[in-house]
Design a protein around this nucleic acid. Structure first.
Length: 263
DNA sequence: CTCGACTCCTGTTAGC
DNA sequence: TGCTAACAGGAGTCGA
């Protein structure tokens, strides 16, 4: 997906959709609805209500509804976008087409004033559910404390990168944020989480926070220093050393063998 | 419980 | 130019 910074932009955009009566629910793709939700049920639950708050936990967008209605949970998968009244929050989304294709409109709400909120996802890896279990997500990466980060890394033999991307322990970090953060912090993504020293964790925390704020301010997860070097001939932006490309935690991973040495 | 492999889906791109 | 295979910012499930 869209990682945390993109979903934060979606959340801000979704605020434009608040307090507008819902007159129609567009759910043409039943497969896109999860946890047993059907087009009939989601229509009955949302029709006539209004969105009253736009929240975000990690990569999950949560839209609360009026009159004690359900919370609408939106996931954007790897290519999903949010569109409100034909305005898109994020213009450049790597690995996702920019064009508007009606067939990619997987779920949407029509408002009484004629406007709309739409989830546009070419790849169908996004999801819509009602009253998602918010407890399944770890603390949001934008506000995670240093001690929380220390605790969620402690004792794990999994690669530190895999641990950072485990949404049940830390919500919001995806592949690009993980690589950029570990690169800035000078940590090998494949090191076991438990092998980090206290100073490593403090540095990681500092850079994680900085990367997130940079990406939120700068327009997305693709704006990192490492991003333009994310290809087979890529070199370290800092020292020019050819980047190491491998799979860590099941995801394509780029790192500088010089600044991010293995133990 | 923890962790890695596999799977879902489809548009783009690299390579023959 | 055209076809095919690999690959992609995510995450759920299964099994060792």
């Amino acid at each position: 997906m869209p990682e945390l910074p993109e979903v934060e932009a979606y959340r801000t955009l979704a605020e434009r959709a608040l307090d507008r009566p819902i007159t129609e629910v567009h759910a043409p793709d039943a497969w896109f609805l999860k946890r047993g939700l059907t087009p009939e049920v989601v229509t009955a639950e949302l029709d006539g209500r209004r969105l009253v708050a736009a929240r975000r936990i990690g990569k999950q967008l949560l839209l609360d509804t009026s009159d004690d209605g359900p919370t609408l949970g939106l996931h954007f998968g790897m290519a999903g976008r949010l569109v409100v009244d034909e305005t898109t929050a994020v213009t450049d989304l790597v690995y996702s087409p920019n064009d508007a294709n009606p067939a990619w409109d997987r779920f949407g709400l029509r408002f009484a004033d004629g406007g709309q909120l739409m989830v546009r996802d070419s790849r169908r890896l996004g999801a819509v559910e009602l009253d998602p279990d918010e407890a399944r997500l770890g603390p949001d990466a934008r506000s995670v404390s240093a001690s929380q980060l220390r605790d969620l890394l402690a004792g794990s033999q999994a690669p530190v990168k895999a641990r950072l991307m485990d949404q049940s322990r830390l919500a919001g970090v995806g592949n690009l944020i993980a690589d950029e953060t570990l690169w800035r912090a000078g940590l090998d993504p494949a090191r076991s989480a438990a092998s980090l020293e206290p100073a490593d964790v403090r540095r990681l925390h500092k850079h994680l926070r900085a990367v997130l704020e940079d990406f939120i301010a700068g327009g997305g997860s693709h704006t990192g220093s490492l991003q333009e070097q994310r290809h087979r001939e890529g070199v370290c932006p800092r020292c020019g050393t050819p980047l190491l490309r491998r799979t860590v935690g099941g995801r394509t991973t780029f790192s500088c063998p010089r600044h991010q040495p293995a133990l």
